[in-house]
């Protein structure tokens, strides 16, 4: 059953950036968008499962550090080859300066 997890502080992620968050044997990427919202996706690229944590956030896209595939991190949509499969996304909420994700 889905549950809310306290993932990080809002200050832990710069705007237009991401961090890695590991929980219960799974790995996620949490993003801070340019307009101050937070989003969460699976941490591994759907192409060859490289972690997105070293990737580049440009506006609402994350670019994978290995072969430059891009995803819209709000919807998980694969925007650019070589990724052809979308990322899973997870709900987020901010409470008391903390970012929570529903996994």
């Amino acid at each position: 059953m889905a549950q809310w997890i306290d993932a990080c502080s809002t200050d832990d992620i710069e705007e237009e950036d991401l961090i890695r968050f590991d929980h219960a044997g799974r790995t996620f990427a949490i993003y801070h968008s340019p307009d101050g919202d937070f989003f969460c996706t699976d941490g591994l690229c759907t192409h060859e499962h490289v972690h997105l944590e070293d990737g580049l956030v440009m506006e609402y896209e994350i670019e994978c550090p290995k072969h430059n595939a891009t995803f819209d991190y709000r919807t998980g949509e694969a925007m650019r080859a070589p990724a052809c499969v979308n990322l899973n996304t997870y709900k987020t909420k901010v409470e008391g300066g903390r970012v929570w994700i529903e996994v």
Binding site: H47, E48, H67, A81, P82
Partner: peptide, 10 residues
């Protein structure tokens, strides 16, 4: 060639 170059990087 996009895919072959992807493999060259992997």
């Amino acid at each position: 060639w996009r895919w072959s170059h992807t493999r060259h990087h992997t």
